[in-house]
Design a protein around this nucleic acid. Structure first.
Lengths: 217, 217, 217, 217
DNA sequence: AATGAATGAGGCTTCATTCAT
DNA sequence: CATGAATGAAGCCTCATTCAT
C-alpha cells in the first residue's frame, strides 16, 4: 500500500532533478536564448512535452536550473570557512586551493560564466548570485583580511579591495580556461596559480633590495 | 606575420561606421541572440533592409562589430607599451592605471563580457580576442616581469602566472561592475583598486614582523 | 419511424453517468474547444485516462453528452403536449409557462446555446437537435395553431410563422439571460415575459380605437 | 512625389481592412478556437507572419474583427430610427422589414451567433455588443411602445417585455436559419415572418369572437 | 478497471531575410 | 542605394491521446 507504483513514483520524484541537470548542462553550454527545449528534453531522456509537467515555461526551467546551480555553490562557501584561526600567512595558501577545489566541484566557472552572460536578461538572477555567492566569497576573504589587520599582520588598506587582489587572479584564471580553454595554447594551471599567487599576494613580487649591490638600470 | 588584423579589414571601409557602432552598442547590451536587427537599424538611423546592402547575415554584422571592437582594444595595447624602461616598482602603478583608462576608453569591459558570453557560439571570435587582445596583454605584462626577474627585481616564478596576479584583480573588478553594477550596494572603485593592488602585488599584504631584525627573506 | 433517439442509446448504459454529466457541465460552460478533458475528468471524479475506457475521443464524449442533453429535452416535449383540448386562449398562457419550466429544468437555454455555438463544427448534432427538439416544439405549437384555425379561433396565416411569433420572444429572453445575464443591468424576467407575451400574442398590442363603440373587453 | 510607392502604400493602408474582413469570415464560420491564423491569412491573401505586422495576437485580430462587425451594426441602428412619428400600427410593419434588411446587410445573424458562442471567452465583447447593439435595439423598440402607450395606442404592460414580443420572433427566425439553414427542410422566410408577425403582434392571433355564432368547443 | 505520467502533433508567435518599389 | 512590407522557418507551449503499471 505504501508504494502503489514505485517505479513511476520514483521517476516522478527524480524527474525534476534530471531535468534540472540536463538544463544546467545545456544552458551553460549554449546560453539561454540558444538553448532549445528539445535539446534539454533529449538530454534528460524525455519528450519535450514532459518538461511542462514539471515546469511552466522555459524561463522557469532556466531559473530552477540556476537556483540549483547557485545553491550548490552557496552551500560550498560555508564549508570553506571552517578553518581554525591562524595567521593569514599560514591560512591563505590552503584557502585558495580549497576555493579552487570547491569551485571546480560545483562547476563554478561555467555557472559564473552563465551569470555573466544572462545577467541582462535575468537581472534578478544576477542579483541572487551576487548576494548569495559573489558577495559572500568577498566578505569571507575581506573578513580574514580585517582580522589580520587587527592583528597587525596585514598592512592598512581597503579590505574589500584586498579581497579582489586575493581572489581576482583565480577568477581570471578560471574565466580564461572557461573561455579560451578549448583552443588556447597556453592555459593557466589553476593549482599552480593558486600556490604562486598565495605567495605573491602575501609577500609581493619584489625581491628585497640587495644592500650592497644595485637593483635596476 | 604581416598583419593579423588584416583579417577583418576586408570591405571595412565600404561599410558605414554607423552600422558597426550601432551594432556594437546593441550586441554588447543585449547579447547576440537577444539583439534584433530592427534595433540595430534603428540605432544606425537606417531601415532594416539597408543592413543587407552591407552585410549578408546577422552573424556577419556581429563579426564585423566584434572585429571593430577588438581592433580598437588591440591598437590601444601597443600604446600602453610605449613607456621607457624603468623598474617594475616604478612602472606598475602607472601601467595599471593606464590599462584601466585604455580599457574604459575602448569599452573593454563590455566587449570582454560579450566575448565571454558568445564564445561558445562564436569560438573563432573568442580565439581572435584571445590571440589579439587577451594574450597580448598577458604577454606584455609577463614580458615586463621577465625583464624584472632578469634584473633580480622580481622573485622567481612563472611570469605568466604573475601576469594573472597582476591583472586578475582589475579584470575581476571590471566584471564585477559590469555584471552587478546596476544593483550592487558595493562596487569596487577601479582607480583605487589599481593603486592599492599595485602596492599589494609588488610588496605583498604582509607587514614586516616587528621584532627587532629584518622582515622577509 | 421506430425511435430516432435510438441512435444515441448505443452503449449508453455502459458509460458512467458521471462522465456524461461532468461533460455536459463543462461543455455547456466553456464550449467544445475550450473544454479540457482534464476538467471533465476532474468533475467526474476520475482520472483523465479513465475517460478513454468509455469513450474513444473527445468528440465522442461531446456527442454522448450532447445526445444525453438532447434526450432529456426531447422527453420533456412530449409531456408538454399532454394537456386536454381547450381553446388556444385558455391554453397558451399555461403552455408558455410550462415550456419555460420544462426548459429550465432541462437546461434548455445552455444546451441550445451550445448547439448554436458548435453547429458549424458538428452539423450532425445541430441536425439532431433540429429534428428532435427544435422542430418538434415548433410542430407542437403550429399544430395547436392549426387546430385553432380550424375552429376559427385564430386568424389565417402560416401556422409555422405563428409558432415563431409565439415562441420567439421566450427564446430570445432565454438567450438574452444566457448571454448577457452576468452583467446586464436589465435582464428580462422570463415568467413575466411568458405571461405578458401570451396576452400580447393572443390579443395584440393595440388598444381598441376609442371612436364611439367599444370593441373588446 | 506624393506617392513614392503607391501600390505598397495603398496595400499597407488596405491591409488591416482586408485582414479584418478575412478574420470576420473565418471567425464567424469556425469560432474563435477553431480558427487558425493560417486560414485567416490565406483568405486575406497574405502570409501568416504578415498578420503580425498589423496585429499583436490572435485575440487582437478577433477583437478588431468583432469591433468592426459591431460597428457596422451599431451604425445601422441609428438609421432605423429616422422615421417620422406616426402610429405604431403604421410604423411597425415597415420597421420590422427595415430591421431585417439592415440586419442582413450587416451580417447581423452571423455576428450575433458569434457573440453568443464566444461570450464566455470574451465577456467584454459580449458586453459591448449588449450595450451598443442589443440594448439599443430593445431601447428603440421599447421607446416606440412607450410613446404609443402615452398616446393610448398600446395597452398597458412592461414596454421592455413588449420589445421582446416584437423582436423575439425575428431573432429566433434569424438564428433558426443561421443554425439549421444548411439542412433544415423548413426554414422560415424572414420577410414573410416580419410581415405576418407585425400583424400578429399588433392585433393578436385571435379572431374577434363572432357575435352570433360561437367559436370554440 | 483505473491511473496519471509521458508523448508529440499542431498552433501561435518571432524575427532574420527577401524583394518589389 | 534605400526602403519597409512581406515572408516563412523555427521554437515555445498546449492538450488529446497512449500506455506501463
Amino acid at each position: 500500500m505504501l508504494e502503489p507504483s514505485m517505479r513511476w513514483q520514483r521517476r516522478k520524484d527524480a524527474r525534476p532533478a534530471e531535468i534540472i541537470n540536463a538544463a544546467i548542462s545545456v544552458f551553460t553550454e549554449k546560453g539561454y536564448a540558444a538553448t532549445k527545449l528539445d535539446e534539454v528534453a533529449k538530454r534528460a531522456g524525455i519528450a519535450k512535452g514532459t518538461l511542462y509537467l514539471y515546469f511552466d515555461t522555459k524561463e522557469d526551467i532556466f531559473r530552477a536550473a540556476a537556483y540549483h546551480a547557485f545553491e550548490s555553490n552557496l552551500n560550498a562557501i560555508g564549508g570553506a570557512d571552517a578553518a581554525p584561526w591562524t595567521s593569514l600567512r599560514e591560512r591563505l595558501p590552503e584557502l585558495l586551493l580549497r576555493l579552487l577545489d570547491v569551485a571546480n566541484e560545483n562547476h563554478f566557472p561555467a555557472i559564473f560564466r552563465m551569470v555573466i552572460s544572462e545577467s541582462r536578461l535575468f537581472p534578478d538572477l544576477a542579483r541572487i548570485w551576487h548576494d548569495d555567492v559573489a558577495s559572500r566569497i568577498l566578505d569571507l576573504i575581506a573578513g580574514l583580511v580585517i582580522q589580520a589587520q587587527i592583528r597587525d599582520e596585514v598592512r592598512n588598506g581597503d579590505p574589500r579591495l584586498f579581497a579582489f587582489s586575493i581572489t581576482g587572479p583565480l577568477l581570471a584564471g578560471m574565466l580564461f580556461r572557461e573561455t579560451y580553454g578549448s583552443f588556447s595554447s597556453y592555459t593557466p594551471e589553476l593549482q599552480a596559480l593558486a600556490v604562486q599567487h598565495a605567495t605573491t599576494v602575501l609577500d609581493g613580487l619584489m625581491l628585497p633590495v640587495q644592500t650592497h649591490g644595485n637593483a635596476a638600470t
